[in-house]
C-alpha cells in the first residue's frame, strides 16, 4: 500500500515537473504572470489521493524544478516553495468544509488565491520591505491568478472525469 503510494507520488511528480518545465519555456509579459499549470497535478492528486501525496508532489516539484532551472534556494525558490505549500494546504483545508461546496474549479481558485497571497507576503517581508509596492501589485496578481486558477480548475475537472472513466473501463475489462 505504502509503496503503491510512493510510485503514485513519483509518477505524479514527474507530470508536475514536466508541466513546470514546459511553463518555464512560455514567454511571459511579466515575471509574476504565470499559468501555474503544475497546480493541475497538485489538485488532481489532492482530490484523488489526499493531502499527503499532494504535499509530497508539490515539494518534489518545487525542489527538483528549481534545481533544473538553477534557482534552488534563491529568491524565486522561496516564493515558489511558499506559494506551493500555502496553495496545497488551503485547497486541502477548503475541500472537506462542506462536501460538494466546491468543485475542482473552486478549489483551484482557492489554491491560486493562497498561492498569490503567500508569495506577496513573502515578497514583502524578504525582498521589498515595502508594503505599498505589494498592495499596488496585489490586484493585478489576484486577477491574473483567478483567471489562471479557473482555467487550471477546468482542466483538473476534465482530467479527473476522464481518469475516473478510464478507471471504470479498466475494471470492466478486468471483470
Amino acid at each position: 500500500m505504502r509503496s503503491a503510494d510512493n510510485v503514485r507520488i513519483a509518477i505524479l511528480s514527474a507530470f508536475a515537473l514536466a508541466l513546470h518545465s514546459i511553463e518555464a519555456l512560455i514567454p511571459s509579459p511579466a515575471p509574476w504572470l504565470k499559468l501555474g499549470l503544475a497546480n493541475i497535478v497538485t489538485l488532481v492528486t489532492l482530490i484523488l489521493y489526499g493531502l499527503y501525496p499532494a504535499l509530497m508532489v508539490t515539494f518534489i516539484r518545487v525542489i527538483l524544478g528549481s534545481l533544473f532551472t538553477g534557482t534552488f534556494l534563491g529568491p524565486a525558490f522561496l516564493l515558489s516553495f511558499g506559494g506551493g505549500t500555502a496553495s496545497t494546504l488551503a485547497m486541502a483545508a477548503a475541500r472537506p468544509l462542506v462536501p460538494g461546496t466546491f468543485s475542482a474549479v473552486g478549489l483551484s481558485l482557492i489554491g491560486a488565491l493562497f498561492h498569490n497571497l503567500a508569495q506577496l507576503a513573502i515578497a514583502s517581508v524578504l525582498f521589498i520591505g515595502n508594503v505599498d509596492a505589494v498592495l499596488f501589485i496585489a490586484p493585478f496578481v489576484i486577477l491574473a491568478g483567478t483567471l489562471a486558477g479557473a482555467l487550471n480548475g477546468f482542466v483538473s475537472e476534465l482530467l479527473i472525469a476522464n481518469l475516473k472513466k478510464s478507471d471504470q473501463t479498466v475494471q470492466n475489462v478486468g471483470q
Binding site: T101, F102, S103, G106, A138, P139, A150, G153, A161
Partner: peptide
C-alpha cells in the same frame, strides 16, 4: 459541474481585484 460556490467565489475574486 461547477457549483454555485465556485461561480460565487470566481465573481467575488474578480470583483475584489477590479475594485483593488
Amino acid at each position: 459541474a461547477t457549483t454555485r460556490a465556485d461561480r460565487l467565489l470566481f465573481l467575488t475574486l474578480v470583483a475584489l481585484a477590479v475594485s483593488g
